[in-house]
């Protein structure tokens, strides 16, 4: 089942490691011309990845505080080893899986994805991850299961945001089974070929690139297959503003801000806005929502 989705780009197009560590240095001309050539090629296709520094220092992970820099400052407290995931509900092989056991034998792929936050900023991130479908097939999804529910770890003593009750924790999310099985949907374990940082959702997180970032739940400890649509955290907090689907859609505004445009992180103080793409530029998922009124199922 792996390798069902092909990037236009490969990891060879990703800015090389020496370069992503400090892109501004390259631009200043301190690194060789080859690096500039590579970065230029990727950006020509509109997908120049953000630097590791950007990806790991500007995060929403409310368990660690509401400021964008809070997760980077506080997430070192997250204990990620040992890590196990409870798989339950309508599956053939339920249980508490050690992370390594759950992923054993599955292929880790490179996926260079756009990442669009509901707050109208975006990044491009070179993930390393496993197709969620592979994991679900490994545990055996039963025929009546129509939804997948996910849950983030809660370590109250390590999580300042949990102590402050910013949201009703644990953070929960969900997908329809066809969304979960789609080849674009991955469980990420790395970024830039490094183990995923705590502030990005270590040791394993969901990535659904055609949905707003909050759907891509971090630091997952539970996966449940079920018949009914599961509750989701932001929908519980504010149902008028956050729906279950939360597909990136420039035509349906968030009540408090427009979704028509976005700002790509990394452009500095004078970064221009760019148009937001339907399904975040992944039209291959449109068939999943055929016949649905996306202004109602936002």
């Amino acid at each position: 089942m792996a390798y069902r989705w092909k990037n236009d780009l490969t990891m060879a197009d990703v800015t090389p490691k020496a370069a992503y560590l400090n892109r501004r240095q390259i631009l200043a001309g301190t690194v060789g011309l080859g690096a500039i050539g590579l970065a230029g090629r990727a950006s020509a296709q509109g997908l120049e990845p953000n630097t590791l520094e950007e990806i790991t220092s500007y995060n929403n992970f409310y368990e660690f505080g509401t400021g964008k820099g809070d997760p980077a400052a506080n997430a070192h407290k997250l204990v990620t080893s040992p890590w196990s995931i409870k798989v339950d509900g309508m599956v053939d092989r339920p249980g508490d899986y050690a992370l390594d056991d759950l992923l054993a034998g599955l292929s880790v792929e490179d996926r260079l994805y756009r990442f669009r936050c509901v707050e109208a900023w975006s990044m491009v991130i070179p993930w390393n991850g496993i197709e969620l479908a592979d994991i679900l097939n490994k545990v055996g999804v039963q025929s009546g299961a129509r939804y997948v529910a996910f849950e983030t770890v809660v370590q109250p003593e390590n999580m300042i945001g949990v102590q402050r009750r910013v949201l009703d924790f644990p953070y929960v999310e969900g997908l329809r089974i066809d969304e979960a099985m789609h080849p674009l949907t991955i469980m990420a374990t790395g970024i830039y070929d490094e183990p995923i940082y705590n502030q990005n959702g270590a040791p394993i997180r969901l990535v659904v690139p055609w949905k707003y970032g909050f759907k891509s739940i971090k630091s997952i400890v539970r996966i449940t297959l079920q018949e009914d649509e599961p509750p989701t955290s932001w929908n519980k907090a504010n149902p008028r503003e956050y729906g279950f689907y939360s597909n990136v859609n420039p035509n349906v505004d968030h009540p408090r801000w427009s979704q028509a445009t976005e700002r790509r992180i990394g452009g500095g103080l004078f970064a221009a806005r760019q148009d937001t793409l339907m399904f975040n530029g992944y039209p291959e998922v449109a068939s999943l929502y055929e016949g649905m009124d996306l202004t109602r199922f936002y």
């Binding site: 520094e53 964008k68 992180i265 500095g268 103080l269 970064a271």
Partner: peptide, 17 residues
Amino acid sequence: RALNQIGPYLVEPINVL
């Protein structure tokens, strides 16, 4: 600081400013 992306302005200076 925002212009030079220093401190809290490192990644996304506009909203922070």
